[in-house]
Structures are given as structure tokens and as C-alpha cells.
Lab assay of single mutants.
Amino acid sequence: MTYKLILNGKTLKGETTTEAVDAATAEKVFKQYANDNGVDGEWTYDDATKAFTVTE
């Protein structure tokens, strides 16, 4: 299944996707991606759209 990450960081904005077996796996991938790019903020998840959002 495809999951999307929407980044609303102070220095990094954009979107990326990942293929994962479930939302928990996608969340781990996205949190590592955000951490690697220096984005740390409030996380939300919308199951209807399979989209995670992180806002700094």
C-alpha cells in the first residue's frame, strides 16, 4: 500500500511516498526520513487518505 508524507517544516516543505505493509511501518520510515532531514514537529495521520503530516 502507498502512504504519503506531507512535510510542513520550517526549512523543508514537500511530499514523499513510500510503499509499506501497514501504517505503523510507513510511520517508522517517514519519521526516520523527517529526522534525517532535520524536521521535528507535530505528527498527524489521516487513514482515509493514507497521509501523514508533520508540521514544525
Rank of each mutant, 00 (worst) to 15 (best):
F52N: 00
A34N: 02
E15Y: 12
T2V: 14
A20P: 01
E42G: 05
V39D: 02
V21S: 11
T25C: 05
T2N: 06
N8E: 07
L12H: 13
D40K: 13
D22V: 02
A48C: 08
L7Q: 02
A24W: 10
I6P: 01
L7T: 04
Q32T: 09
V39Q: 03
D47V: 10
L7I: 15
A34L: 11
V39E: 02
D36H: 08
N37L: 15
E42F: 13
E19K: 12
F52Y: 05
T18P: 00
T11Y: 14
G14D: 08
A23P: 10
W43D: 00
V39R: 02
E42C: 11
K28C: 09
N37R: 15
V54F: 05
Y3S: 02
A20N: 03
Y33H: 04
F30A: 00
T53G: 03
T18W: 07
L12C: 11
G41F: 03
N35G: 08
M1T: 14
A20F: 04
A51K: 09
V21E: 12
E27C: 10
E42R: 09
G9E: 03
K4C: 05
T55F: 07
A51Q: 14
D46W: 03
E19R: 12
T44A: 09
V54R: 01
F52H: 01
F52A: 01
G9P: 03
A20C: 07
T18D: 02
A23D: 05
K28E: 09
D46V: 04
G9R: 04
T53V: 07
K50Y: 09
G41T: 01
K50H: 13
Y33E: 02
K28L: 13
L7Y: 10
A51I: 15
M1H: 15
A24Y: 10
L5Y: 02
E19D: 11
T44K: 08
Q32C: 08
D40R: 13
V54I: 11
N37T: 06
L5V: 04
A26W: 01
Y45R: 01
W43V: 02
G38N: 10
K10Y: 11
E15N: 06
G38D: 07
E56S: 07
K50R: 14
K31N: 04
T55R: 06
V39A: 03
I6L: 06
F30E: 00
W43N: 00
I6A: 03
A48P: 06
G9A: 08
Y33S: 02
V39F: 13
Y45K: 01
T2I: 14
K31S: 04
E56M: 07
A23Q: 11
E42V: 14
T17E: 09
N37I: 14
L7K: 00
K13G: 05
K31D: 01
D40G: 08
V21M: 13
T16Q: 10
L12P: 04
G41M: 03
W43A: 00
Y45P: 00
A24N: 08
G41L: 03
D36A: 12
V21Q: 12
K31W: 07
G9I: 08
D36R: 08
Y3N: 03
Y33T: 03
N8Q: 09
K31C: 05
G41S: 01
E56Y: 11
Y45D: 01
N35V: 14
A48L: 13
T2C: 11
D36W: 07
D40V: 15
E42M: 12
L7M: 12
Q32G: 05
E42Y: 13
D40Q: 14
K31T: 04
E27R: 07
K10H: 13
E15L: 08
D36L: 12
A51E: 14
L7V: 12
V54C: 10
T49E: 12
Q32Y: 05
K13N: 09
V21A: 13
T16I: 15
Y45C: 02
Y33C: 04
L12K: 10
E56W: 12
A20I: 03
E19I: 15
W43Y: 02
E42A: 10
A23F: 13
L5M: 04
F30M: 02
D40C: 14
D46H: 05
T44Y: 10
Q32H: 06
A26M: 01
W43E: 00
K28F: 08
A23K: 14
G14L: 15
F30G: 01
K13V: 10
G38V: 04
K10S: 11
A20G: 04
D47K: 08
Y45I: 01
L12D: 05
D47Y: 08
E56A: 07
T16R: 13
A26S: 02
T17S: 11
A24K: 12
T55N: 09
L7E: 02
E19Q: 14
L7D: 01
L12Q: 09
A23N: 05
V54Q: 00
G9K: 04
D47R: 07
E56Q: 10
L5G: 02
N35S: 14
K10I: 15
A26L: 01
E19C: 14
Q32E: 10
Q32M: 09
K4T: 14
L5C: 07
M1W: 13
E27F: 15
F52W: 10
K28H: 08
T11S: 11
T49D: 08
E27L: 15
K31F: 06
N8P: 04
E56R: 04
N8F: 10
A34E: 00
M1L: 13
T18F: 11
D36Q: 11
T17R: 08
T25P: 00
T2L: 13
T55V: 08
Y3A: 01
L5N: 02
D40T: 14
A48M: 12
N35R: 15
T53A: 05
V39G: 02
A24Q: 12
D46E: 06
T49A: 12
D40N: 12
T25F: 07
Y45V: 01
K10A: 12
D40E: 14
G14Q: 12
L7A: 04
V39L: 11
K50A: 06
D47I: 09
T25A: 14
L5H: 01
K50D: 02
Y3P: 02
K31R: 15
G14Y: 14
V21F: 12
G9D: 04
K13D: 05
